[in-house]
């Protein structure tokens, strides 16, 4: 049953999903192409870029974005990559759940053998693989960019794979958020407003924690605070605490969604 729903979800979301997945791939490729070609210009702009790097969350002191390793890490935490991640997960969850509830489409499904919980499991089955694979967009872009500029030898691709998996986990967190809000909201517009608000607050908290000295701790109130490629690059591995926090909170949000679905008075 959930397989049919997963197919339907992909069918419904395919255009938005393709666009959202292509963006991080392009960011990675363009970053790879631009890094060596514009090296002189970048050196001239170093003071400006050093200030701007707060926007791309590369404030970890030991990661120098002017090295190949640091530069090829950028696609994993570029705002466009994170934004497209949030958009992809919204596309896969909000219109399917809250949007169809608002226009009456869910009623057509929920009078078949499909239950309210079955619907959520179906959406999960469609969205989770996409979420977990999502981080490989920047990775593919990085690989492509690195290959095009001949920087394939010394780059730590194993760590980039870890970053890709961690970005996938962040996407899964956003997916769980989308399912939670989609289950709760009465229509697509309300769901979208709520989702945008939560994601915007997450971005603001994360940016503030990086941009303002002494505010580091507030990043942990945002899922983005638990996703830090720079720290992974430093450690040479994934950060278990971050993995655990993102995974457990995503599972809890999905469990809450199942409960809300059961308790909703209106399907």
């Amino acid at each position: 049953m959930s397989g049919h729903i997963a197919g339907w979800v992909w069918r419904r979301a395919r255009v938005g999903l393709m666009l959202a997945i292509l963006l991080p791939l392009l960011v990675g490729t363009i970053n790879g192409l631009a890094w060596p070609v514009w090296s002189k210009e970048r050196e001239v702009l170093r003071p400006v870029l050093t200030r701007l790097r707060h926007f791309v969350r590369t404030d970890v002191a030991d990661v120098d974005i002017f090295t190949p390793e640091g530069a090829f890490m950028i696609p994993f935490q570029h705002p466009l990559s994170l934004l497209s991640c949030a958009v992809a997960m919204a596309v896969l969850t909000l219109p399917i759940l809250a949007g169809e509830r608002g226009r009456g489409g869910l009623e057509i499904l929920l009078v078949t053998r499909l239950t309210r919980r079955g619907l959520l499991w179906g959406v999960l089955r469609a969205a989770l693989p996409v979420a977990l694979c999502f981080g490989h967009g920047p990775l593919l872009g990085t690989c492509l960019g690195a290959a095009l500029v001949g920087e394939t030898g010394d780059l730590p691709f194993a760590i980039y794979e870890c970053m890709a998996l961690q970005l996938g986990l962040l996407a899964a967190w956003l997916m769980a958020l989308g399912i939670l809000i989609g289950t709760w909201a009465s229509d697509g517009a309300k769901a979208l407003r709520t989702y945008v608000l939560v994601v915007a607050i997450s971005f603001v908290l994360d940016f503030t924690s990086h941009a303002m000295k002494g505010w580091d701790a507030i990043k942990y109130f945002s899922p983005l605070g638990w996703y830090d490629p720079g720290e992974m690059l430093q450690r040479g591995s994934m950060v278990p605490t971050s993995v655990a926090v993102l995974a457990v909170s995503a599972v809890l949000m999905f469990a809450a969604s199942l409960r809300i679905a059961d308790q909703r008075r209106s399907a």
Binding site: G105, E107, I108, V111, T112, R113, L114
Partner: peptide
């Protein structure tokens, strides 16, 4: 009862 009922909505909400 699921699967044994046919339901036709008043407002057509087909996809």
């Amino acid at each position: 009862w699921r699967g044994r009922v046919g339901w036709l909505r008043g407002e057509n909400a087909l996809f």
